[in-house]
Design a protein around this nucleic acid. Structure first.
Lengths: 352, 352
DNA sequence: GCATTGGTTGCATACGTTGTCATGAAAATG
DNA sequence: CATTTTCATGACAACGTATGCAACCAATGC
């Protein structure tokens, strides 16, 4: 009973063939006779042989490893993407090497990734120093930035149309007759937050209005709570809030209901971004902009593996259409002012 | 400008030393003079050298890879664990190889894991055929079952005390005077669901009562919705439901409120299990049993790496204490019958 | 029947590193 | 000063696989 270390040589000896033959029997396009292959496979089965992927990677230069760099999984959008991406890559014969990164130690993490000879890198991390991307490019490792865009970088990117999404929200809120429309930003240095805000501002301008108030939530729950306090702690409260992602929007709704006793959407409309699964839950019924996660993942895989398999890094930017999902957290269009509405418990809001 | 393929030999040539010296300069406990090391490191920096982890793994027999097998990430408990586990392993110098598994293709997945010479396996998958664990054990790869226990298997396991957790829920509900207490199970073949139910049944028995009705939700949202329909579609509705995890409990609350017009907790108390972050959200304020995720992860890492580093597989089972977290979805003790309570909008329920 | 072709097989080497061994120098001991 | 010990270093052999190359065999074409 060989204790785990059964090699192609062992199989070859048992089958009475050369080690090359064993190797060939396990590679797909190789020149092996059917007889040889079945004979080898039988011997392999008997010994419990499994090709050593590491040795294969070393000689062939193809590790089959894709590094996935993620900052945090609190925001449910990322687990969703992680699952989809992981399944898609597995289906195409690649393995996912997962790296959780803090804000600080990114360079260390990238060093480790490259040590493992990953063939490609997906960065779903919010921040990324440009030197790192350059270092990856230097080693010939393709990089795809997921849900983030950085102009001058030698890396591809996949995003949804954050600008248009923000603009659509502006039209929805302004069209519903809201007078004091506020915005809660995510991380100021993230392209998602900036683009959403830019589109939002543009959309409001098209309605002849502008953002009434603005605060920064940094994509965290704590930040969102603080932002709500900033916006609603004064004398004139907004009557609508566009929050840069769902993750913060849930906090916003909780705070507005509990701390400020406001009804949603009667007193204030709330809009999020991402359309994470919880947005459809009846307790929140959040109007939001859906990011096409499946399509974004598909695009990521296509772009990345194309570069991997052609062995040349290139730069492309995929921008996929986003879609406004209207639920119960926003006042319907043309409903007049908030105070004219009749009372209705917010938890009864139904999902569209 | 070497295009990525810079080896220890290249560094040696530049530094005018042997290749062995380079290798030694990069391993920790090796016998190298400080002068030699700085000289090598400088040459390495100049060339942008990075040791090839795959080659190192092959010769040393230590890949530094830990396989993490997860079934789905819908239930937010798992992303949380994934993040904690991943960070903990990274901190100890290991990399996480992520595998998403369907119900069917588990054997394929395990084959792939072993091909990559992973040093250890964490299975957070709900189901796992016993032959797989045996196969892993045969190769000398330690396996830790996370949040799941399978008696006859050559694998360690880490769980929380599901039995006691279920029992505590029984005491809470029976103690609050509930008359018709129902249970919604998870996957019938999962140890978590079975243990929680066993403890729950025991706890009710200790109060001289028993489960009023029971349905199976299979840990899915769809299953939970069906289960609620089964339990509440008849003439006599339960006045309390213990749901086998939070993920399903949220669905239960939504359905009870919308579809059956019931108030929580006035008309019916709902208890979940896991204490995922959403349970604390004001929209649900779910009473639940907290699984000690950090401690469970810590135990998993300790047990696994101990086996990895001592190079011998063993079997141990860690059972960590769980903790009842009482929020607003359950009626306080000694409140009398449900109909005696005054009306209060459920969304105003505050978090403790 | 002979030359040519096409397909199989084995041999030897390479991938980039670690670990073992021998060697030589320097330091410690009497 | 002679001898032992310690230490740093280089040469070389692995690890398990893929692959170019040459050799071989059978079959085909003329």
């Amino acid at each position: 009973m060989p204790k785990g270390g059964v090699t192609s040589g062992d199989v070859a000896r048992l089958a009475g063939v050369s080690q090359s033959a064993v190797s060939r029997s396990f590679s797909d396009g190789a020149s092996v006779s059917p007889a040889m292959r079945t004979r080898v496979l039988e011997a392999a089965r008997q010994l419990g042989y499994r090709p050593n992927a590491l040795a294969r990677a070393m000689i062939s230069g193809r590790s089959g490893l894709i590094a996935l760099m993620v900052a945090y999984l609190d925001n449910h959008f990322y687990p969703l993407v992680l699952e989809l991406l992981s399944r898609a890559l597995q289906a195409r014969g690649y393995q996912v090497l997962l790296f959780m990164t803090d804000r600080g130690r990114q360079d260390q993490v990238v060093q480790r990734m490259l040590q493992y000879q990953v063939e490609g890198i997906v960065m779903a991390s919010a921040t990324l120093s440009s030197t790192l991307a350059r270092e990856c490019a230097k080693t010939g490792t393709p990089v795809v930035l997921f849900n983030r865009y950085v102009p001058g970088l030698p890396a591809s990117s996949v995003t949804s149309d954050n600008f248009e999404g923000g603009r659509a929200v502006a039209h929805l809120l302004a069209g519903a007759g809201h007078q004091r429309i506020a915005f809660i930003a995510g991380q100021e240095d993230s392209s998602t937050s900036r683009d959403r805000e830019a589109g939002f501002t543009k959309g409001l301008a098209e309605h002849g209005t502008a953002v009434f108030a603005r605060a920064v939530g940094s994509y965290t729950r704590e930040g969102a709570a603080l932002a709500i306090h900033t916006l609603f702690g004064g004398t004139t409260q907004p009557d609508a809030v566009f929050v840069a992602n769902d993750h913060m929007a849930f906090v916003a709704i909780d705070r507005l209901r509990i701390q400020y006793g406001l009804r949603i959407p009667e007193d204030v409309s709330v809009v999020g971004y991402d359309d994470v699964p919880e947005a459809a839950w009846a307790g929140y019924s959040l109007t939001t902009v859906a990011q096409p996660a499946e399509e974004m993942v598909q695009a990521t895989v296509t772009i990345l593996l194309d570069q991997v398999e052609r062995r040349e890094v290139s730069r492309s930017a995929a921008v996929l259409p986003s879609r406004l999902v209207i639920r119960g957290s926003t006042r319907p269009a043309g409903t007049g002012s908030a105070s004219a509405r009749t009372h209705r418990p917010p938890s009864d809001a139904t999902d569209g």
